[in-house]
Design a protein around this nucleic acid. Structure first.
Lengths: 185, 185
DNA sequence: AAGTTTACACCGAACGATCGGTACAAATAA
DNA sequence: TTATTTGTACCGATCGTTCGGTGTAAACTT
């Protein structure tokens, strides 16, 4: 149950939380109903497309969040080290130091083709963003591309391992490793 | 539909394929029934515990596979480089160069506590196995532990990214990186 | 100003379909 | 025969979804 109930945005905050905790198939409308405090019929008023539209909307919300906290920084101006630190802090906050899973990991399994397309798009944007950051720090293009890829892999993988082990240290270690070596030639 | 239908082992091969493709929640008994060619009654004859027992059995199968192709090599004798190569080849085969997801990633979401415990146990075994391999190659204990963790992270993460992008290159790149740098001091 | 209409957010109840699971008897193998 | 294995039919529960309708407050009419 959230502060701003009746608005789509308010509902979406709860939806994001549920979907990334249980995956698309793991979340039922009854569950959504009770977590938002809205009847199932009301949910269909805000999301006429049903569960599929809810999933797409959640992907959009996550995309918007990345846009303002990650993409804009990666693709913006300023000292590379400062930009990197800003992004890493944002990610630590978003994933709650590794306690929360990533929608890019859990959503594509049950989500429809639109969700999978959104996942792909976001991943590509993350890759080019990190590549750009590395490149702007004077790292050669091919190397920058490789670092971007292993950065995304490190984030996703550490979250998977955190979930499996029930520990946050893999994610935190990964963040530490990125701080140490992402920008060093 | 598999060669050895009516045996538990034969059924499990199909189950593993379904579960790791769709996750626990994404697989229905009807689907299992049609993919194995067995009626529900037959499935419940082999797995009296139902879907939950099927999931646990799949985890056991994956565990057994790891036991003979990975753990025994990581914890065994022989040239470290040879052992590493053997493990990586086995993983490339198991994940079909990145086309298939890992049960450690997709199962814990809907799977019960037993499945999650199995996931945790397998991950810990993988970690100590890789640590041991690194250690036996003369790498200091703390460093070996860190390498083991980032190796597991790299495997899981690259599979997630492969699934998201619809490409196998992240996984293949990761394998290449492990060959290049896992054993180098 | 008072009455009417429109628009919006919401809900209870029920839909058909499918879920995981079971009872039981026929078929098959030993 | 006896024991194992399977197909058919079925169960209650829950799935995602839709229907018909309520309450409320702003927007228009007169």
């Amino acid at each position: 149950m959230n502060g701003e109930r009746s608005t789509r945005e308010g509902i979406l905050v709860d939806l994001l939380e549920e979907f990334r905790a249980c995956g698309f198939d793991g979340v039922s409308l009854s569950r959504i109903s009770e977590v938002t405090g809205l009847g199932k019929a009301s949910l269909y008023h805000h999301f006429p497309g049903g569960k599929g539209e809810m999933a797409q909307a959640v992907m959009s919300l996550a995309g918007d969040w990345l846009e303002s906290h990650v993409f804009s920084v990666l693709e913006g101006q300023g000292e590379p080290a400062v930009r990197l630190e800003s992004v890493l802090l944002a990610l630590e906050d978003f994933y709650q130091q590794g306690r929360k899973s990533c929608v890019l990991d859990v959503m594509p399994l049950g989500g429809g083709p639109e969700v999978q397309a959104a996942v792909k798009q976001v991943m590509q944007r993350l890759l080019s963003g990190f590549e750009r950051l590395a490149h702007s720090a004077g790292i050669k293009k091919a190397d920058a591309k490789a670092r971007a890829e292993s950065t995304l892999i490190g984030i996703q993988g550490s979250l998977v391992v955190c979930r499996g082990l029930g520990s946050t240290s893999p994610f935190l270690n990964q963040m530490k490793a990125l701080r140490k070596s992402f920008l060093t030639p």
